[in-house]
Write a protein that binds this DNA or RNA. Sequence first.
DNA 1: CATTAAAACTAACAAGTGTTAGTTTGGAGT
DNA 2: ACTCCAAACTAACACTTGTTAGTTTTAATG
Lengths: 195, 195
Amino acid sequence: MKKAIPKNEKRKDEIVRVAAKLFKEKGYSAITMRDIAKALDIKAASLYNHIKSKQDLLKIIIISIAEEFTDKMQIVCSSKETSIEKLQKIVALHVDIAYKNPYSMGALNNDWMHLEEELEYYLKLRNSYENNFRNIIKEGIKTGEIINTNAEITVFSILSTLRSLYLWIPKKEGLTAEELTKNLNQVLISGIQNH
Amino acid sequence: MKKAIPKNEKRKDEIVRVAAKLFKEKGYSAITMRDIAKALDIKAASLYNHIKSKQDLLKIIIISIAEEFTDKMQIVCSSKETSIEKLQKIVALHVDIAYKNPYSMGALNNDWMHLEEELEYYLKLRNSYENNFRNIIKEGIKTGEIINTNAEITVFSILSTLRSLYLWIPKKEGLTAEELTKNLNQVLISGIQNH
DNA sequence: CATTAAAACTAACAAGTGTTAGTTTGGAGT
DNA sequence: ACTCCAAACTAACACTTGTTAGTTTTAATG
């Protein structure tokens, strides 16, 4: 007979969520389809009623979040706010996405190189994001809002911290997104702000 | 006949270096012994004249660097310097190790969970390191050297940046270790310093 | 109750995995 | 020229991998 065509998107979402969680813990390559199946208490072959392939799982996990980052960065950039305000919005964006996607951020940060078809597209998104970030910092230095540091290193430092949030948030259960955002703004942005 | 006992430590070092480079690019699990062999232009079985196992390669790469971090952190901690001076020493330590081990830092950051025998030991080292770091920050806040931020978040932010150095250094060829250290001190430390 | 289709199952595959055993090679020291 | 042995090789192993084909179960709908 023909292959079954999935209808229950809830189940697919559950598989993607479980896969992301496992990928975060050990990385894409170390996790087998049998691992994912076992975590769902089914057999590996059953996964294929819902998803096309292991590679497809990775794509679903990474691309949607990469697009969200790039799109929202675009919005922030095209606003008329000050550079400092833009940076604060970006901190909030990272906190928000990291809170909403506790598992997927692992694959986004560490397994993007295992994308195949979509690797080029992913790199395009990341490049766009980083360029926008860099331009905000450079603009802020030019206008005098931001102290005159090495722009490249400032970008690198802030981005390194924001990209690591996903590792850190689950370890601090009491901390709300609002509180974290406030503290990060203080540590990351006030330090480079001209007063 | 008996198995050959390796003598040429230079060759072993070369294998470890090449393995670390590949691990950095795709992660421990994605790299096969045949990949490593091919990069050295030999057959996979030949690797076993020099190393015990794939797992052994990971151990060699990770543990030596983890010990260096922990040992040197210990030395900095037990000195009589100010908190700010200690932090500057630690920044320099990270820059130095990242420059000297451009490949191994990838495995240290992303593949430590694939350690088996030595996982517990590695976690002990990391814990010791992080505790020392946290104590320096807390001490600095207590003495008034460091502005009164959330200590946990400050630790997390600085450490995230320092841990990402290995990704960033190879992309900025012109940058010397001294220059990078100076700029990082400015961005990471001056921002939290009381004046 | 009968029908239907999603979603599970069993069985199997071809390719790839880390590793071992035993053999050959090539160059340095006598 | 001969010996020696590190370091390469070939061949094979037992096991794991992602994936497909075909079948059965489950549960909602008429």
